[in-house]
């Protein structure tokens, strides 16, 4: 069904059902941690997560009705942001740690063995603290993640595709507003909360850009084996940004 035919409750339900499963690394990282071992594990996880992310995107009501190249473009633009918001969500109950997967969590100190990671770790930990303060609800989280995908690029192939995308974004915005409306807040507190949640997204975009540059550097230094899909997604970013 078209997203406009769904009520906000139904849309949220569909977004909840689209949530990807927890992805396990299935390999114990032997101590001491080294730059190569950490990068290897994180890129392996990112590659596995990408496959699930595509399945997730296809389950977002209306996404597959966009042109195929627009779907490609949106996913290429937002994949690291989507992975980062997932990481933040998983880490919210574990102050000082980032939960990359159920079997891989790293503290700031552990992350620091990778050159250039501390800055990115600190930004992710700060964003996680903010999400903790805001007591983000699961319903709000799924809406924000869908928004990241749908808002990742404004340049679509046709004006028809762009207007479809805008209608989709409107439906997700309505769903987010209705999720916020479920909380015991005054109207003023509700729109302040909406603003706070949306402001998180610009931080996530910023960290994602930093992370993308970092991954690109690591690739240039041959520090990581990059898997097919991950490599494709990284190259697309380098191409779009240059």
């Amino acid at each position: 069904p078209q997203p406009s035919a769904l009520t906000s409750e139904q849309l949220i339900e569909r977004l909840m059902e689209a949530e990807p499963p927890g992805i396990y690394l299935m390999k114990d990282m032997k101590k001491p941690l080294t730059e190569a071992k950490v990068m290897m594990s994180l890129t392996n996880l990112a590659d596995k997560e990408l496959v699930h992310m595509i399945t997730w995107a296809k389950k977002i009501p209306g996404f597959v009705e966009l042109g195929l190249l627009d779907q490609v473009h949106l996913l290429e633009c937002c994949w690291l942001e989507v992975q980062m918001v997932g990481l933040i969500w998983r880490s919210v109950d574990h102050p000082g740690k980032l939960i990359f997967s159920p079997d891989l969590s790293l503290s700031r100190e552990e992350g620091s063995c990778v050159q250039g990671f501390v800055e990115i770790f600190d930004m992710l930990l700060a964003a996680t603290s903010r999400v903790r303060e805001l007591k983000l609800q699961r319903e709000e989280y799924v809406c924000l993640k869908a928004m990241i995908l749908l808002n990742s690029n404004m340049c679509l192939s046709s004006s028809e595709s762009s207007s479809k995308l805008l209608r989709l974004l409107d439906a997700v915005t309505d769903a987010l507003v209705s999720a916020i409306g479920k909380t015991v807040l005054t109207f003023r507190q509700q729109y302040t909360r909406l603003a706070h949640l949306l402001m998180l997204l610009s931080h996530i975009r910023h960290v994602s850009n930093k992370g993308m540059d970092h991954l690109h550097c690591m690739k240039m230094k041959n520090m990581v084996p990059l898997y097919d899909l991950l490599l494709e997604m990284l190259d697309a970013h380098i191409m779009h940004s240059s």
Partner: peptide, 13 residues
């Protein structure tokens, strides 16, 4: 974007 296209166009089981 061969792999991405391939994953986007496969029908879910």
């Amino acid at each position: 974007h061969t792999k991405l296209l391939q994953l986007l166009t496969t029908k879910p089981e």
